[in-house]
Write a protein that binds this DNA or RNA. Structure first.
Length: 415
RNA sequence: GCGGGUGUAGCUCAGUUGGUUAGAGCGCCUGAUUGUGGUUCAGGAGGCCGUGGGUUCAAUCCCCAUCACUCGCCCCA
């Protein structure tokens, strides 16, 4: 085995794997188009500030998982760990506020220096959407409806469940934060080390701790839903009502929180139990403060991102391969003639395979291996009369047809 | 970043209680006379037994380290 390994946490996508990713991307993009979302491609790296200032200095992503480096010009650059910040920056850079609302779809690689696991890589791929410039809950509903639609189109409706929560507005969150702090302070000595660390930084995160001891304490913790102010309550109620109207099943999970600081109000997550520890397949929420925080005009937004690798693992659709038609010269003297025919046939839109080397037997063997449905065999005897042999590789039947009719015959028979 | 498991042919895996030339299945290549694939038969190629170090007369096997994958924690998509 060669010692040339790819960098830890990165993977090559060969034909089959790439096809599966492609399928996810295609379905997601086509479905998003039905909702008026257009693809937006932002750079794979940004100035470090774009992420550092927006994701929150308590998030692990910023504190220890970013690929940050200095350019020759002395600028600090970071490989994007997620997509929203880049889209928000593009929104500001391009003055898109005047075109709001903006509906953006994106796909591509993201980079996070984490310990690799199943469904977790250092370079991974996401699809995502952002709906920027709509204040009301209709936007949240539309974006969740789109996510549901895409997952359904990928055949994942049954393997995935939607959880929903409200993180409230700034006022509600601040209020709840202090209530939570008071509650957890009492149990300070019993909390896990991880949660103890979160107590000072982001006590909300304690709510989704998996630690046994923590869970017991959390059971009795105050409920965020009881501490939302009227506006926040009305907002999440409207979202829930909208989902019900659209018959989108969900469960309210008051313990659901977000790792990134820019979220408010609606937070949601589609999870699965069949992917082990990395159960989150698609997640997102509302980020009304983000664009202003980045220095743009105060603009609300809501969106989500999904991991392509995780979706591809869940979606076991059998991808059908196109079957080619093989052109086979009987002798090497006919190679040039065959090559010409191949080119003509391809120009008519047919999928033609043509071996670079080998005698007739080898070429037919390869045709079979490529799952070709038919072979056009060029032999001296037939060519004298301007004919070729057309062999159906499934049935083994073969006819002699005129060279001038090949394209038409193939198209009507196999096209 | 922390803890557990794994690492032998392109793939899936045996195996050596430390001892000459490390095996199977699949795949790959060649052949079974004339211009015909799939099936069959015969033959063949391909392994520094993940990498580096240690113990030993001797290591693929034991010990240490390291790298990668994997499971859990963490994090999140």
């Amino acid at each position: 085995m060669s010692n040339l390994q790819p960098v830890r946490g990165t993977h090559d996508l060969l034909s089959e794997g790439r096809k599966r990713h492609r399928h996810v991307e295609d379905v997601a993009m086509a479905t998003s188009a039905l909702y008026g979302f257009e693809e937006m491609a932002t750079p794979i790296f940004e100035f470090t500030d774009v992420f550092a200032r927006t994701l929150g200095d308590t998030s692990d992503i910023v504190t220890k998982e970013m690929y940050t480096f200095e350019t020759k010009g002395g600028e600090s650059i970071t490989l994007r760990p997620e997509g929203t910040a880049g889209v928000a920056r593009a929104f500001i850079s391009n003055g898109l506020a005047q075109h709001a609302p903006i509906k953006a779809f994106y796909k591509g690689p993201m980079f996070r220096h984490e310990r690799p696991q199943k469904g977790r890589q250092r370079q991974f791929h996401q699809i995502g959407v952002e709906l920027i410039g709509v204040e009301g809950p209709q936007a949240d509903i539309e974006v969740i409806a789109l996510a549901t639609h895409i997952l359904a189109s990928l055949g994942l409706s049954a393997s995935v469940t939607l959880e929903l929560n409200s993180l409230g507005d700034i006022e509600s969150r601040a209020a709840f934060r202090s209530v939570l702090l008071d509650y957890f302070k009492v149990y300070e000595s019993d909390l896990s080390d991880d949660s103890l660390g979160r107590l000072g930084k982001n006590p909300l995160r304690i709510l989704d701790s998996k630690d046994e001891g923590d869970r017991k304490i959390i059971e009795g913790a105050p409920d965020f839903a009881d501490h939302l102010n009227d506006a926040s309550k009305a907002f999440i109620d409207a979202v829930q009502q909208g989902l019900s109207d659209l018959s989108i099943p969900y469960t309210r999970n008051v313990k659901l929180v977000r790792g990134l600081d820019y979220y408010c109000h609606t937070a949601f997550e589609f999870t699965t139990t069949s992917l082990g520890a990395q159960g989150t397949v698609l997640a997102g929420g509302r980020y009304d403060g983000l664009i202003k925080q980045m220095g743009g005009p105060s603009t609300p937004g809501v969106g989500w991102a999904a991991g392509i690798e995780r979706l591809a693992m869940l979606s076991d659709v059998s991808l059908t391969k196109n079957r080619p038609i093989s052109v086979v010269p009987v002798s090497s003297d006919l190679t040039r003639k065959a090559q010409t025919l191949v080119q003509d046939l391809r120009k008519t839109g047919l999928f033609i395979e043509f071996s670079f080397t080998g005698n007739m037997k080898k070429r037919l063997k390869r045709a079979d291996k490529s799952n070709a449905r038919a072979a056009v065999i060029l032999g001296e005897d037939e060519l004298k009369d301007g004919n070729v042999v057309l062999r159906d590789l499934d049935s083994g039947e073969q006819d002699i047809i005129s060279l001038s009719d090949v394209a038409q015959t193939l198209t009507s028979k196999y096209g």
